[in-house]
Design a protein around this nucleic acid. Structure first.
Lengths: 184, 184
DNA sequence: CCTCCTGATGTCATGGTGTGACATCACTGT
DNA sequence: ACAGTGATGTCACACCATGACATCAGGAGG
């Protein structure tokens, strides 16, 4: 079993990412992405439902990791503790490559479509976390509120972390904000 | 001065709304909207930057009303009180036609694009409210958190209100949730 | 009354997105 | 060798969105 050959989805993802960075999102066409990946446009749409989605590959793993972390907390932990664990897991998972995250964020910021898609993904994540909380016996409305509030903290903390010059870790920035919210 | 003639933007908006309800969002083409309004597709795009945007006409007024309400609170009121006032103002403004709101919400729910756009508008609103809070001397991070949390309450309360069979007012449902969050 | 200007709309042309239907080709098991 | 299966290509198409330019109605001012 030799070195790993990137499959089509991965080749497309990398080609797209590179082109987006080189030329911008709007300026890059699906045809270009496909060509760089050695494929046809038609094939691109077999792997990604649309051009934007290629920027959100891997969001499933993030969801699963965060949900798992929440589920893994002690049964007697509070709702806040459970979501805090999820946030930490998520922060660790994406807190690695700040450079790419910044480029990606810039793209999102000037394309309402992309920003909207990101927010939709986060809303989905909030729904999942709320489900985990309900499994643990938290009342419906409270579960929703806590999960959504946590994801808001995640989002704001992430944005702030991207702006920061220092080298604090993403988990730190988010943890700080979560504490602040709970004390408000 | 006779009866008011709806201008082009309004005719397009109504035509679009009707067609969306009749046939669904995807199934409705810009050409159909324009035709029903007695105009050309090209003209549609002179009034709305894209097909989705027609569902968000009037969001500016909502922003202004809510920001004004927050600004109008007593200077010694807390950040929570200020956003609560904004939420009430917003709830009053859109709490009228539940029927149309439900149809609109259904459309949003099965089109990620539309839902994303809605979330983007709300994020924008949160930013505006955070600005108002900062004007009142609230610290940056706290202003962001409170504003975003409030908008989350608004969104969740709105969704819950749409589901409810009873006849509680939107402002009540939202107020209840805001209290709950503050007590968490 | 005519003319000029301006704003709103129409016409035409075009590039890009996304999808259905069908063909092709490589690989796999038997 | 062969049939089946999955991945990819080819072709055709509808729709979205936008630039460039034409047209037309109505008001301002001579």
């Amino acid at each position: 079993m030799g070195r790993w050959e990137p499959d089509a989805a991965e080749r497309l993802r990398l080609a797209a990412r590179d082109l987006f960075v080189e030329q911008g999102f709007e300026e890059t066409t699906v045809a270009q992405i496909a060509e760089r990946a050695g494929l046809t446009p038609r094939t691109f749409f077999r792997y990604y439902p649309d051009k934007r989605e290629v920027l959100f590959a891997g969001s499933d793993q993030l969801e699963e990791a965060m949900a798992a972390a929440a589920r893994a907390t002690a049964p007697e932990a509070t709702a806040w503790d459970a979501v805090a664990a999820a946030l930490t897991a998520g922060a660790t998972m994406i807190g690695g490559s700040r450079a790419w995250s910044r480029q990606r964020q810039d793209m999102l910021l000037d394309h309402a479509d992309l920003q909207g898609r990101e927010l939709t993904k986060l809303a989905r994540l909030a729904t999942i976390l709320a489900g985990v909380l309900r499994e643990r016996g938290v009342a419906d409305v409270e579960a929703e509120l806590v999960a959504e509030a946590a994801l808001t903290v995640f989002r704001l903390g992430f944005a702030a972390w991207l702006e920061e010059p220092g080298d604090r870790t993403l988990a730190e920035v988010i943890g700080e904000r979560l504490d602040l919210l709970r004390r408000l």
